[in-house]
């Protein structure tokens, strides 16, 4: 079952399209990293999925067919928005009470235990908490709903490295204990490899990569070889990026099951971060549905 499924999704604000013709499926039971630069449409996509935004075109379904934003869908999805917006003028206790009353199912004790671990007092005003504490509070409130799907929009952006680690530790523990699915958007790619099992790269409103992280990384390699044989390589592989030196070229390619490379070429694995950055640098590259031909003139070339 797919926890999120969007087809031909588009959202327009005035004349500007935040996302357009986006179709993707996010499988259940995964920790999905939704990656893209600022303005890629990640937040809009997630807002459509949790029912905050009504798409201009297409539709968003969750849990194999429920309308996004429907009461049945809302009961099963917990969302922590970017910057974890909470009522700053209320006490922590009041926010917990408020959230409990807005949900049919809510585990108050779980939040209290979590906040106790974090040293967050219930009588403190939310606005007096640090950014990290507010994020932790928002996460605790979300997890107390025991959702089937947890959607996190840029949760790491305003956290320091320690707080990031703690935050993701809580998420991963919940995944292990409750088996919930997680969709996590971020433009901080460095830490995703450790936590995510599925990757979606969204750029300029369209999906560039969507797949299991291990498969995606295994499917891409770095090839280094003579510059005059670049064109032959481009005929055999989908080339994502070319870095040209004076005599040698370095190509990031999608191998598509092809194993044959020339004797003068060396192959090495690529890190997830390197792979993502290569795709983000070239919004026209795509590792899904309609792979680019190796000889495409749209491939980004970098002269070193």
């Amino acid at each position: 079952m797919n926890v999120i499924e969007v087809s031909n999704l588009g959202k327009r604000y005035g004349k500007r399209w935040a996302i357009r013709d986006c179709s993707l499926s996010i499988p259940a039971g995964e920790v999905v990293a939704l990656v893209g630069p600022n303005g890629a449409g990640k937040t809009t996509l997630l807002h459509c999925a949790v029912g905050l935004v009504e798409p201009s075109t297409g539709c968003a379904k969750v849990f194999g067919g429920l309308q996004a934003g429907s009461p049945e869908a809302l009961a099963r999805i917990a969302f922590v928005a970017q910057d974890a917006p909470l009522y700053k003028y209320l006490s922590v206790h009041a926010v917990i009470e408020l959230t409990r009353n807005l949900n049919r199912s809510f585990d108050t004790n779980l939040v209290r235990e979590r906040l106790d671990d974090l040293g967050i007092g219930l009588s403190q005003k939310v606005g007096k908490l640090s950014g990290g504490q507010q994020s932790q509070l928002a996460l605790a409130l979300a997890l107390a709903r025991h959702p089937d799907l947890l959607v996190l929009d840029e949760p790491l952006a305003r956290l320091d490295p320690l707080a990031r680690s703690e935050f993701m530790g809580v998420v991963m523990r919940a995944v292990a204990e409750e088996g919930l699915s997680v969709v996590l958007s971020s433009h901080v790619v460095s830490e995703l490899e450790r936590v995510a099992s599925y990757l979606i790269v969204l750029n300029v409103g369209r999906v560039q990569i969507a797949g299991d992280i291990d498969s995606v990384t295994e499917d891409h390699v770095l090839l280094t070889g003579p510059i005059d044989e670049v064109d032959q390589v481009r005929e055999s592989f989908d080339v994502v990026q070319i870095l040209r030196g004076d005599r040698q070229a370095r190509l990031l390619v999608r191998i598509n099951g092809v194993a044959d490379i020339g004797p003068l070429w060396e192959s090495s694995s690529v890190s997830l971060e390197e792979l993502i950055l290569a795709y983000l640098r070239d919004p026209d590259s795509s590792a899904i549905s309609s792979p680019m031909s190796g000889g495409s003139s749209q491939i980004r070339e970098v002269r070193t």
Partner: peptide, 18 residues
């Protein structure tokens, strides 16, 4: 203004009912 609609309207209670 405070962005809290993103919190409240994604809770279990549908926003029209809210």
């Amino acid at each position: 203004e405070s962005g809290t609609y993103r919190f409240t309207w994604t809770q279990g209670m549908p926003r029209t009912l809210w």
